[in-house]
Design a protein around this nucleic acid. Sequence first.
DNA 1: TGTTTGACCACGG
DNA 2: GCCGTGGCCAAAC
Length: 119
Amino acid sequence: MPDNTPTYFDLVYAVVRQVPKGRVTTYGAIADFLALGASRMVGWALNHVTPGDRVPAHRVVNRKGELSGRHHFATPTLMQELLEAEGIRVEEDRVQDFKALFWHPVEDLGEDWEPVLSP
DNA sequence: TGTTTGACCACGG
DNA sequence: GCCGTGGCCAAAC
């Protein structure tokens, strides 16, 4: 019965783990890279993330560079603190110089990248 | 089983 | 450049 078929969760987690330190990406970029077709599912998947998953969810913001998911962390300020700890400036819940810090999964990993499901 | 909701995005006005 | 609307897929009720 072992069905190792990767789920949305697994794929999203795997991609987010590849986000380089000090960089950020967006829900849409992940959805597009994985060809999910629904960027909402990325956020929904991250909602079920636990600290044990080792997924840097704080590096995922919406397309405006806003920390839209900060409210789902342990504390509303944790997301910002984690980003600032990596050298990312955050003001008014928005990533400064977001355009330059934006990380493109498809450009860095390539379209043939396969998710590493094992932590 | 059908409806509602969600850490969103693209597009048109 | 901001605002409203539609669409997307999967889970929860």
